[in-house]
Write a protein that binds this DNA or RNA. Sequence first.
DNA 1: GTGACTTAAGAACCTTTGGAATCT
DNA 2: CAGATTCCTTTGGTTCTTAAGTCA
Length: 913
Amino acid sequence: MKRDPNTTPKVETNFNHLVIMGSLSEISRDAVGKLLRRANKVGTYKKKTVVDFEPELNEAQLLESILLPKTSEVEHCSRNSIANDSAEEKCGHVSLDQGYMDNKEELDDSDWEDGTVAMDDHPMTIELNVTPVSSVQKQIRRASAEDKELAELVHKVHLLCLLARGRLIDSACDDPVIQASLLSLLPAHLLQLSNVTKLTSKALHPLISWFHDNFHVRNRTNGEKLPHFALASALELREGSLEEIAALSVALLRALNLTARFVSILDVSSLKPGQSFRPIASGSSKGIFNTSTPMVSKQKLDFKSPKKSLSSYEREKPCESSLGQSRKRKKRRSTSNMDQSTDPSVAEDLNCSVTNSQTSEPQDSNQGGSHITDESHKSKRKGDLEFEMQLEMALSVTAIDCSKSKVESGANADSSNFSCPSKRMKRVIGEESSTSPQLISTALGSMKVGSPLYWAELYCSEENLTGKWVHIDAVNSIIDGEDKVEAMVAACKTSLRYVVAFAGQGAKDVTRRYCTKWYKIASQRVNSTWWDSVLAPLRNLESGATGGVIHSRTNQITATEANTNDSFVPTRSSLEDIELETRALTEPLPTNQQAYKNHSLYALEKWLTKYQVLHPKGPILGFCSGHPVYPRTCVQTVMTKNRWLREGLQVKPNEHPVKEFKRSVKPQKVQGFEAEDDDCTTDSKENIKLYGKWQLEPLNLPCAVNGIVPKNDHGQVDVWSEKCLPPGTVHLRFPRAHVVAKRLEIDYAPAMVGFEFKSGRSFPVYDGIVVCAEFKDVLLEAYAEEDERQKAEEKKMNEAQALRRWYQLLSSILTRQRLNNRYNNSLASELSIDVQCMNDNVSNAKVCGSNDKNKTHKHNQMDKCDTNLEASLSIPVKDHEHAFLKEYESFDEETSLLTKRCQCGFSVQVEEL
DNA sequence: GTGACTTAAGAACCTTTGGAATCT
DNA sequence: CAGATTCCTTTGGTTCTTAAGTCA
């Protein structure tokens, strides 16, 4: 992963930060890497990856493949990106087709119903022979473990991306230029807020209403700007995306020297597979269709098929609203009594961004018009776009080199794409400046709202006794409306799974503050261990930036006592932790029974599993449909004696099973009809007896005495864990340990570590032996020796085998040569060349074992062969019989080698025995 | 529209101690 | 001949989870 050379200094700063927080960047890399590897493997997961990944794709390309959705939305593509896209799409199609052919049989109707397969260049007709009735009864395919794993990986990576984005926005809020510009716009009387020492939420009303009147949400694309510039641009125009306006409100609060956080709902892809990602703010399609006040004319809805009209409607909506907004905007501008001139210094800075957004405007509307015609084959979902954008931004932060794999289509997209419903909510709720729940519900009824996604949290030292973080939604002009957030989000058919507050480059999960029904979202969140480890470094940064020692009224009174008696100094962070924890423990009782099934705090007896009991059975916390509600802490897991044994625990004497149920014994197939008669006897024979944790004591195994290992009925020791070892024994996990133990006549028992299931039967799995502790060293020593000896023997055997093979090879060559010489066949010359080539290699090969004192005739013979071969290969083959004359012989006394020579130059070395 | 309940299907979990043939 | 090693074959019942349908 290389750093992108194109990243701006701002991003680099962030990256450096990430590097400092090693753990987080590691987690990011790990999660993204896993996803990429996983994606590489998965080619058949249809809903998420229609493109069949090519194995030779590199990571960047692969990422692109994931991100490049099946279709693309023309309106957000730059000219360049369109060209690139089409090229890429072509590639995509090749593999898509391939993938389709490969997995043809796996594709079911639902794939086509999704309508996400892009066939841009090839018009296609799909003939459906099915009747409408049968198409309704589509095949339900449950998600496999693999699908779940992939969904979880995507979820995690998406979370990391959103976290990274939040940090970028947060750092943009700290920008001194933006803050100064905001202050310069602020009427003088509101500036006094910065001098207020005892801040309450009431004091904020004038400020927030001024902000709300002067900054507006609008749907626009602002190119590839970084949050920093996007924010500046929004400030310049006094309008921007939901995110930008919320961020500006945070910047304003910070400019006034107040402690503020940028809060965002991390609207992340689902943890469960098969659920297509739909950003909250875009509203659910179901909701839109249920609305009684459609936002577009009926004609547009009448579009071929209901399915088609759904998607077209979804896509048209933003355009229409965008146009509407621009009209509204003009009106607003002309009537606005606010000073239209802006700070010249800021204007200078922002010049380019302003032109950017201005030029993007007509383009926007043009494309809006054209995309209706193109939509039949360009239907990239907003969620996909958002995901791409976030992933890209996060990757740039974590400096993954994705410059080549830039998802061009996504780059132009902006969070404002999906902010228009929220903007409408603002009109409805904000303009009437009322926050009554009734009004919200009216707004929701007409589905003119999106969900609040971003807001601010301000620390008010005079709220409560110790101070409090106050929810401030400047976009909707809501102050201290934390209890309304959940209802607003729920109205959008989603839930707030992750609400994260950003400050000082850090982040903190504050979901608990906004969520009253934790049981509903708990299952939709990633496992808390992972999430906590991700947030740990960010939490520190956050509390470093916002935390401070509390000097509340109560503390001031007891300040001296606290200093002397208690070392605990409450910080904002720790007090908030307590507040959130308290919320977690005081959740109201759910009204529906099924909510108790996996509730973390409460339980109903009827929803307990087979291996759960209530102990103690009380206190009763309340009732749900007549069923008593118990605390979850009373739910205990019960197990059989054997299962507890594995945990290193045994049932105390005289304890009766707390739960008992009949084991259903299936009649043995072999016995056939005999078993039918046995039915009642087998049933009564064995009941499964379960015991609770309170009935147990530590395992009391017989000790090893006199070097004898206590064994079970099978003459072995069950080693489920170290706890199961009899006292005074050790588990030696090396192979062939029993051989050594047996040789040394040490008592041992095979260690059974589990079972393996094969062909319907279970077989014990052994690993090493169990011996008395006193023999451990002796055995290890002996084993080391034995090991060494065995290795030496192995080596010797290898060498001998090598010798044998050499001999075999050489003699076969020789035989061949001899045959050639004798019969002088036509292949002779060819062979000689072949053999000549081999000569270099073979003659250099040193034949081992020739120094062995116990030289056998075989070895001797081999040596002969060796030299013979050398000689025979070194001379050209002729029709000639060697004659070894005595006078050419030489004898080397040192090596006892007799060298015989022929006149032709051929020589043979012979070792005398 | 909501929730209780049923049904159905697939995933996940639990079960828990050979024997014949061949090689060394 | 004894002991070690390899090969054979590839369960099936129960519970949990999830989604859809029905009904009050």
